[in-house]
Design a protein around this nucleic acid. Sequence first.
DNA 1: TATAGTAGTCATGTTTTTTTGACTTATTGT
DNA 2: ACAATAAGTCAAAAAAACATGACTACTATA
Lengths: 103, 103
Amino acid sequence: MTTIKEDFEQEGCPAEGLLKLLSGKWKPQIFRLAVDGSVRFNSLLKKLPNSNKQSLSTALKELEEAKLLIRTIVKEKPLHIEYNLSKRGRALIPIFMDIEDLS
Amino acid sequence: MTTIKEDFEQEGCPAEGLLKLLSGKWKPQIFRLAVDGSVRFNSLLKKLPNSNKQSLSTALKELEEAKLLIRTIVKEKPLHIEYNLSKRGRALIPIFMDIEDLS
DNA sequence: TATAGTAGTCATGTTTTTTTGACTTATTGT
DNA sequence: ACAATAAGTCAAAAAAACATGACTACTATA
């Protein structure tokens, strides 16, 4: 168990890491789209016209590493990959709504 | 009144702007310290040993512009400047705590 | 066999953010 | 008058984030 003080000494502010992760370019948009249902690489690329493969690839990977998105290989018609919000990711939805209210 | 869809078309994700602002370097730490009471430029510089004047100056200015911090000239013993969380800034505290719980 | 769809990687280049160090301005203490 | 404290600014350099375009690998369809 860490105290708030210890957390602070570790990284300054306990929310810092997640905050930084979430604010990276395209990540809020990806998150927002994922709230509406599973997202796919090529359709993201179309829905976010100024984005690019590299950035989306990195963003998806980091969101997956943070356990906010789950990457699934779907063995169907055209074999493809889906990204879905994890339970942890869905727990973030009300937080985004609170931030939105303050915006 | 804007719908979620309209907001999305405007900036992709309604929470994006504030999220970006809050995640800038040193800002979470400044915010965290401000929760405990008013903060001052030179003492911030000492409490955040790897920071620097320029970055703190920019961060404080942006947090002030976002109406999260209030800058006050204190006409006392040694004339100085204090930064305090605004009402809006304090409204962010529970949000930071929620993010921390998820971290 | 060739073409298209899906999901990427890689090296490089550009842009944005952050840091450095010298300088400034006003007020206070000796 | 001189030095110290308080709160900065400015130009430039360094570092980190982001974008570009070419390329890869696999599957399916014509």
